[in-house]
Amino acid sequence: MLNCHEASQLASDQLDERLPVAKRLSLALHLLLCRHCRRFARQIKRLRQIAAATKIDIGAQLSDEAKARLRSALQRRRPDPSG
């Protein structure tokens, strides 16, 4: 009989791959009996849906110095305009 720790790992695995039948059955049995793991399984599916529907922005921005470095790198690469 799986405990919640094992069951939640399998529930996570199952989102990304087809589990062997024995694991699938023991997970299904655990989920039938355990409300908390049922919730966990639903929540990580929901995370997948939200992630797919959201433009993730962690708020990272280039500093002015970094922009200047990028600009000069691009200018160095530019071929001689006369040629």
């Binding site: 094992e6 793991c37 919730r39 639903r42 939200i50 959201t54 433009k55």
Partner: peptide
Amino acid sequence: GHWRLKPGHWPTPEAAVEQREMGVALS
């Protein structure tokens, strides 16, 4: 191997606003 902090019930967001809020939180 039992949950210390049991996962709670997440209501299904109905409105687009709620969906967006979840997206912001996930971000």
